[in-house]
C-alpha cells in the first residue's frame, strides 16, 4: 500500500507553549507548523500558563492554515484528528482539545485524544521509519525527563523511570539564570559549555547507581548555585564556560548511563532520544559514544521534530488509527498528568 492510500491524520498540540499543527500519512510527514509563545515567557524565566493559553487561542487557526497550505490539502480531506489530551498545562491543553473536537464534529471525522509523551517517541518514525520493537525511549525536555519501554507505540508503553523533582530542561533554565544566560537555558548553556572544561568541577550526579531509572536534578542545581555563591564570596573569577560544561556533563552523564542501562536490562537494542533537550550537542555525542560501545542503535529525530509540534501527535494518531483503536468520544477530558502507559486518553 502506498502512503497515499493511508489515512490523512491531522495532529494538534497545545500542551505547553507551542501551538502545533501537523499532517501525516503513516510515517510520511506532509507538514508541520508551530507557533511558539516562548518569547512572551522569556522575561518571566519560565512558561506562564495564562500567557501560553491566550497565545494558543490566537495561534490555532493561523497555524492550521499554514499546515494545510504546506501539505496542499483541505480540512475536508482529513480522515482523523489526533490531539494532545495530556499531560500538560490544563488551560493550554483545553484550547487544542476544544478545537480538535470542533473539527471532528464539523467534519464528522473520528477524534483521538493521545498522550503527548508517546508522541515524542512516535515522531521518530517520520524521520527514521517504523520504530523497531521493542525500543527504549529517553524523553528530555523542559517539562519531562522519562525513560520508557516501548513495545508498541499504540498499545504497549511502560514507564521505566522519571524525574523525582525537576525536569532536565528545567534544570538548564535554572542554571542559565544563575549564570546570567538567557531563557530558555538549553542552547546558551550548550554554547558556553563548548568553551569550557567539563572536568573542571565535579558536580553531583543525582540518583547515580541507585538501581532505578529515576532522575533527580534539584541537587545538581543547588550545587551549581553554591558554586556560584562561593566564587562570589571568595572573589575568585567564575568561569561560566567551565560551570556550564561541568553542569551539562553531570546531566548528560546520568541521562545516557541510565538509558543504556535500561536497554541492557531489557535486552533492547534500540534507543530513541527525543524532547527539546535532545537537541543538546553533548547529549547526542555522549549517547552516540555509549550506544556504540553497548551495541545499541541510537535514533534521534532532527531538533525541529524533538521539540513540541503537531506532527508528533499526528504520527501517534496514525499509529493509533492503524492499530484499530476506538476513537475518543466528544466528552473527552484533558488530563494534566496523563500516565505515559495510557497512549489513548479516556
Amino acid at each position: 500500500m502506498s502512503t497515499t492510500d493511508l489515512p490523512l491524520i491531522l495532529g494538534i498540540e497545545s500542551s505547553c507553549d507551542e501551538t502545533g499543527v501537523g499532517l501525516v500519512r503513516g510515517c510520511e510527514l506532509l507538514s508541520d507548523q508551530v507557533a511558539s509563545s516562548v518569547a512572551e515567557h522569556a522575561r518571566f524565566g519560565g512558561v506562564v500558563p495564562e500567557v501560553a493559553s491566550r497565545a494558543h487561542l490566537e495561534a490555532m487557526t493561523p497555524t492550521l492554515h499554514r499546515a494545510l497550505d504546506g501539505a496542499g490539502v483541505k480540512l475536508a480531506d482529513v480522515d482523523a484528528i489526533a490531539v494532545t489530551a495530556g499531560p500538560g498545562l490544563a488551560g493550554a491543553l483545553l484550547v487544542g482539545v476544544s478545537a480538535a473536537k470542533a473539527y471532528a464534529l464539523a467534519l464528522d471525522k473520528p477524534l483521538y485524544g493521545v498522550n503527548h509523551l508517546v508522541g515524542h517517541v512516535a515522531v521518530d518514525q517520520l524521520e527514521h521509519g517504523p520504530l523497531p520493537k521493542p525500543t527504549v525511549a529517553l524523553l528530555v525536555s523542559g517539562g519531562h525527563t522519562s525513560l520508557l519501554l516501548v513495545r508498541d507505540l499504540a498499545t504497549d508503553v511502560r514507564l521505566l523511570g522519571d524525574t523525582v523533582d525537576d525536569a532536565a530542561g528545567e534544570a538548564y533554565d535554572k542554571v542559565a539564570r544563575l549564570l546570567d544566560l538567557p531563557y530558555p537555558g538549553g542552547p546558551p548553556i550548550d554554547r558556553a559549555a563548548r568553551e569550557g572544561d567539563p572536568s573542571a568541577i565535579r558536580f553531583p550526579r543525582g540518583k547515580w547507581g541507585d538501581g532505578t531509572y529515576d532522575f533527580s536534578f534539584s541537587g545538581l542545581k543547588t550545587a551549581v548555585a553554591r558554586w556560584v555563591e562561593e566564587s562570589e564570596r571568595s572573589g575568585s573569577p567564575l568561569s561560566v564556560p567551565d560551570v556550564a560544561a561541568a553542569f551539562q556533563e553531570a546531566v548528560v552523564d546520568v541521562l545516557t548511563r541510565k538509558a543504556v542501562d535500561a536497554c541492557r536490562a531489557h535486552g533492547v537494542e534500540h534507543l530513541v532520544i527525543s524532547g527539546g533537550v535532545a537537541a543538546n550537542s553533548r547529549l547526542r555525542a555522549l549517547a552516540e559514544e555509549r550506544c556504540a560501545r553497548a551495541g545499541i542503535e541510537l535514533r534521534v529525530p532532527r531538533p525541529r521534530l524533538c521539540t513540541d509540534n503537531g506532527a508528533m501527535i499526528a504520527a501517534l494518531g496514525a499509529e493509533v488509527v492503524a492499530a484499530g483503536l476506538p476513537p475518543s468520544t466528544l466528552d473527552l477530558a484533558t488530563d494534566t498528568s496523563l500516565p505515559v502507559s495510557q497512549v489513548l486518553a479516556g
Binding site: L178, R191, E195, S231, A244
Partner: peptide
C-alpha cells in the same frame, strides 16, 4: 538572581 559580581568570559 543572586548577583554574581565575578568576572565572566564574553563567550558566556
Amino acid at each position: 538572581p543572586k548577583r554574581v559580581s565575578a568576572v565572566r568570559g564574553p563567550a558566556a
